[in-house]
């Protein structure tokens, strides 16, 4: 049926994007000044490693053999990619990149999604308030707050939050996902520590996204409130509950565009927030891998971040298609 067709079409589009991004990082490494592959190879040779062993080490790290023609390397790379083999890390010698990024991924994904959900719920509520009471001080102050917060750059917010709540008022601990002294496990102590450390970063994500949701919801609700079918529903004597549902469902539709943009923005913001709060997530991994010249790891982290965004966007797109009958027929 139509829904399945749309899903397949969008899924293929997503895969193509992932493919393009993967290829991009492949060729990027080759464009780097002082080809890091040959650099690594020469470094290994310089330590006295026999050539075949050095060659095989580098091919494992980068996922291909350096002396082959580029096209062959490219195909090998893609083949490895299809098997989820992203090579080995240079800074964490011998450890597969896939393993590193997959253990880092949950930190990023859980934080970002929590942040998105919190900002969505609060923002949507604020937007409804701002729209329904737009002629009184309640609505106007809600709008002002949203506009103000929307204008603050994300990392600024994170810095200020970190500074105010860890240094000025020592309310929350600073840095790290949990207290290193506590043994990880499903214990209340550990979980409590996790939660305590997570408050500020999640707040940073949430507050930076809040403004966008509130403003979009406000304009959407205001627009729907003026729609003729709402008046018609009132004139036909529909109950208040039904009318509110009519308004809500229609007002939510434009928010989906905001959702896709917001997800990309949040995941991208992880490079800051994880850096500021010292979380071992993908964003932090990306930043540190550059400093360590660990290019396979950089490739892997970038690819995973982008894939996460693409997948999230795909889900949001599908949700939208499921809700809006006008699109389904197209």
């Amino acid at each position: 049926m139509a829904f399945l067709k749309v899903f397949v079409r969008k899924a293929i589009g997503g895969l193509v994007m992932i493919f393009v991004v993967a290829s991009f990082t492949f060729f990027l490494i080759r464009l780097m000044p002082g080809n890091p592959v040959t650099t690594k190879l020469n470094a290994l040779l310089a330590t006295g490693t026999p050539y075949p062993i050095a060659l095989s080490k580098v091919s494992v790290m980068y996922g291909f053999v350096p002396n082959q023609p580029v096209w062959q390397q490219y195909l090998t790379y893609l083949g490895e990619l299809a098997h989820f083999n992203l090579g080995e890390s240079i800074s964490y010698t011998g450890v597969s990149v896939t393993h590193i990024i997959l253990s880092a991924a949950p930190w990023t994904i859980i934080m970002v999604l929590t942040g998105v959900i919190v900002s969505f719920v609060l923002g949507v509520l604020a937007g409804v308030i701002a729209a329904v009471w737009r002629n009184s001080w309640i609505g106007q102050s809600s709008t002002f707050l949203a506009t103000f917060l929307h204008g603050i750059p994300q990392f600024m917010l994170a810095l200020v939050l970190a500074y105010v709540f860890t240094t000025v008022w020592r309310v929350f601990p600073f840095g790290a996902p949990y207290n290193a002294a506590i043994q990880p496990g499903w214990t209340p102590a550990f979980l409590g520590s996790l939660a305590k450390h997570a408050v500020l970063p999640v707040a940073a994500y949430a507050i930076s996204g809040y403004g966008g949701w509130a403003l979009t919801m406000r304009s959407s609700v205001t627009s729907v409130l003026g729609d003729e079918f709402i008046l018609a529903a009132e004139l036909r004597g529909l109950t208040r509950g039904l009318r509110l549902r009519y308004i809500a469902r229609n007002a939510f539709l434009p928010l989906f565009t905001t959702l896709t943009l917001s997800l990309g923005f949040m995941f991208g913001g992880s490079v800051f927030i994880e850096s500021i709060f010292d979380y071992p997530g993908l964003g932090n991994l990306l930043t540190t891998s550059i400093g360590a010249e660990d290019y396979p790891l950089m490739q892997g982290a970038f690819l995973l971040i982008t894939t996460a965004v693409i997948v999230a966007n795909l889900l949001a797109d599908l949700l939208y298609t499921a809700i809006d009958p006008r699109i389904r027929r197209a």
Binding site: D227, E228, F229, L231, A232, A233, L235, R236, G237, L238, Y246, R249, N250, L253, I323, D324, P325, R326
Partner: peptide, 18 residues
């Protein structure tokens, strides 16, 4: 709607699009 009702103009979108 029950005792008195209104018929709207042809140009108006008086139905919930969803």
């Amino acid at each position: 709607g029950e005792h008195a009702a209104m018929v709207f103009q042809a140009s108006q979108d008086t139905l919930n699009p969803l």
